[in-house]
């Protein structure tokens, strides 16, 4: 044990020390992890898609960067954002956490901004949960998890001082919905019925859809004249 400690590099020890100080600060400011900073991160330097990608061999060339712990917290969070319902799977069951990993690891400016927000945000979630519940976010009780989300998830009632975590949550929500609703399971849920080549003329609205809009238009006192 002693030997291990001695061989640890001084930088790591310092990091521990600062961590301990941070926890001290957290404890000192009551029930919130508001003392945390959201440090800028170094831009990822990796190969991108390029100007002329090979469509016969579609690949995501950059290495994935999220840790196992970050992926687990992400899975927990995306499933809280859009829980599975009946036959509709939860986002973690259709690859949404892996997509978020791909997204935050991409070597592009927009994704870099999201990476800073998301990696820091995931850390905030854990720190906040530790302060409030004594355990990381994924091990907190469901009610304790939603209590945290309730402070950051609604734009008109973000708890004071939590603007950054709220921005993080909004971005995660947007990425989760985008990633989920572009899967076949998401299509089934939302009712996207396209990408199905047909022959002959375009079929146009179904009788049900046409009858519906006719009713809507006429109820507004306007004329229904389909073309």
């Amino acid at each position: 044990m002693t030997k291990d400690l001695i061989t640890i590099d001084r930088r790591v020890t310092l990091k521990w020390l600062m961590g301990a100080m941070a926890v001290g600060q957290l404890a000192a400011c009551g029930d919130q992890a508001k003392g945390l900073s959201w440090p800028e991160m170094e831009a990822i330097k990796a190969a991108g898609i390029g100007k002329d990608p090979d469509f016969t061999n579609i690949a995501t060339p950059w290495p994935l960067t999220m840790t196992q712990a970050e992926l687990e917290t992400t899975a927990e969070l995306v499933d809280l954002i859009l829980p599975g319902e009946g036959d509709i799977p939860a986002p973690s069951k259709v690859g949404v956490p892996a997509f978020i990993n791909e997204w935050v690891s991409a070597p592009y400016p927009d994704q870099h901004k999201d990476r800073v927000l998301i990696i820091n945000g995931l850390k905030w979630l854990d720190d906040e949960s530790k302060v409030r519940n004594g355990v990381p976010f994924i091990r907190a009780e469901a009610r304790a998890q939603t209590a945290i989300l309730d402070d950051i998830a609604f734009k008109d009632r973000v708890k004071e001082g939590l603007d950054k975590p709220a921005a993080f949550f909004a971005r995660m929500r947007s990425l989760t919905l985008g990633a989920f609703y572009t899967t076949r399971e998401g299509w089934a849920d939302i009712g996207y019925m396209g990408n199905t080549p047909g022959t002959g003329d375009y079929a146009g609205p179904t009788p049900e859809a046409a009858a519906h809009i006719k009713g809507v238009i006429e109820a507004m006192g306007l004329n229904y004249t389909p073309a």
């Binding site: 809280l80 859009l82 319902e85 929500r173 919905l177 985008g178 996207y192 019925m193």
Partner: peptide, 21 residues
């Protein structure tokens, strides 16, 4: 149109859970 929902499908939405769906 009803299209492939795309990454913008959540724009302008709020909250989470079944009401979000």
């Amino acid at each position: 149109s009803f299209g492939d929902p795309g990454m913008g499908v959540g724009s302008g939405l709020d909250g989470y859970g079944s009401s979000l769906r």
